[in-house]
Write a protein that binds this DNA or RNA. Structure first.
Ligand code: ZN
Ligand code: ZN
Ligand code: ZN
Ligand code: ZN
Lengths: 137, 137
DNA sequence: TCTTGAACCTCTAGCCGCTAGAGGTTGTAG
DNA sequence: CTACAACCTCTAGCGGCTAGAGGTTCAAGA
């Protein structure tokens, strides 16, 4: 049995974050000491490690909640888990694509200023007007 | 003079968002009609267009506030504006790099399941444990 | 001129995923 | 037995909006 501080140390998840996960239903309500302090089992430690890693991979709290449920029920086919993961992969790819467009435009805008600005600032000028952009964003 | 709805139509920024920008100091307080409704000038229209485009490029409200001030003061050298833009470019690049790492891991994890899972789901298994990951994230 | 009704007003609360702080209680080591 | 770190709950804040309640104003048509 671990205190919340010990669980925090072992998983690298901050104490208030653990309480937040409990409050949002992602972590189960743990047992309590006589004085009402949380006491965690090894199972809770594993669950929190799963959550931490899934969060690090960018999955949402809701998705992780689904995955935790799916993991707990070995009878269910794992197609849903696969779907969540590949939907997330697609979302990540979409975000990358968007950011790359931004990167290209920003590179152009920042590059303009390397020549130095005479009079009006070319950075501010380019930021002001989308017509100078090469793509939508 | 435009009403807030007209300004919204002309810039593509939603009405509550315009009010939010005003409240956060990004848009100046406009004149008001006799009945207390907002009335915008062409200058306000241009300012909001600038804000919209800078937001579309991912700049924060705070950064845009700085840029708007810099733009309004043609005496100031534009080094600060360049600095904001290139710092933002760096931030975008950092985010891309992070997302690409995620993408690689997720691709691996999703790919595992293509073979089909016998017994334990390989997606859930991989999500649970960082040791199978090829990089930090 | 009067009447609709769309558009406007302010204010509050919610979204996500935490994080910070106040003010009080418990656990543990010396 | 005392001291103090660690715990407890509760509330509020971050960014960048978005939604809704409940009330007022504007402009077009009769
Ligand atoms: Zn410049
Ligand atoms: Zn553009
Ligand atoms: Zn599977
Ligand atoms: Zn990993």
């Amino acid at each position: 049995m671990f205190s919340i501080g010990e669980l925090s140390r072992r998983t690298g998840v901050k104490v208030p974050t653990i309480r937040y996960y409990e409050q949002s239903g992602l972590m189960e309500q743990p047992e309590r000491s006589a004085g009402n302090q949380r006491r965690y089992s090894v199972a809770a430690l594993e669950r929190l490690s799963f959550i931490r890693h899934a969060r690090a991979l960018g999955l949402s709290i809701d998705d992780i909640g689904e995955l935790v449920e799916l993991a707990a029920d070995p009878e269910r086919p794992c197609g849903e888990a696969h779907a969540i993961a590949s939907a997330h992969l697609s979302a990540v790819r979409a975000r990358i694509a968007k950011l790359r467009k931004l990167e290209r435009e920003l590179k152009r805008i920042v590059g303009l200023s390397d020549a130095g600005c005479l009079g009006e600032c070319s950075v501010i000028h380019s930021l002001a007007d989308h017509r100078y952009c090469a793509s939508e964003h």
